[in-house]
Simulated scan of single mutants.
Amino acid sequence: MVRVPLTPEQIEAGRRLGALFRETRAGRDPASVALSAGISPETLRKIEMGRLPSPGFGTVVGLCAALGLPLDTAAQVWLGPTDQHLAAG
């Protein structure tokens, strides 16, 4: 299976999502957050730095649960301001 390259918009969405997770973590130990989310600390670091701009759905759900962040908030951030109408429909 060949993976289609991400678009610049998808890469930017991943950066926004990573920044949200980093800000929400707000000083909590990355290793404990990662463990609670069921991922490695390295994966968390890559997501937060935007180097993994398209994390799997289960990873996003796990991070939201570990951080006490509503999944809808993460979805809104990923969609960005120009796609907000898509989430409402």
Rank of each mutant, 00 (worst) to 15 (best):
V2L: 00
P5F: 00
P5G: 03
P5T: 03
T7Q: 08
P8C: 09
P8M: 01
E9D: 15
E9Y: 06
E9C: 07
Q10A: 10
Q10W: 00
I11H: 10
E12S: 14
E12K: 10
A13H: 02
G14C: 14
L17W: 10
A19C: 01
A19P: 01
L20R: 01
L20H: 02
F21E: 01
F21C: 06
F21S: 03
R22H: 13
R22C: 06
E23T: 09
E23I: 10
E23R: 15
E23G: 11
R25Q: 04
R25L: 02
A26D: 14
A26S: 12
A26Q: 06
A26W: 05
G27C: 11
G27N: 05
G27T: 12
R28P: 00
R28T: 01
R28D: 04
D29V: 09
P30A: 14
A31N: 06
V33T: 13
V33C: 12
V33L: 10
S36E: 15
A37I: 08
A37M: 11
I39R: 03
I39S: 04
P41V: 10
E42Y: 11
E42D: 12
T43C: 15
L44V: 12
R45S: 15
M49H: 12
M49V: 14
G50L: 08
R51P: 06
L52D: 09
P53K: 08
S54E: 10
S54W: 12
P55T: 03
P55E: 02
P55Y: 03
G56H: 14
G56Y: 13
G56A: 15
F57Q: 07
F57V: 15
V60G: 03
V61G: 01
V61Y: 13
V61N: 01
G62T: 01
G62Y: 02
L63F: 06
L63Y: 05
C64V: 04
L67A: 10
L67S: 08
P70V: 08
L71H: 09
D72T: 13
D72K: 09
A74I: 04
A74W: 00
A75P: 00
Q76V: 05
V77L: 07
W78A: 02
W78F: 09
W78N: 00
W78S: 00
P81C: 02
D83H: 11
D83T: 06
Q84L: 13
H85D: 15
H85M: 12
H85C: 13
H85T: 11
L86R: 14
G89N: 01
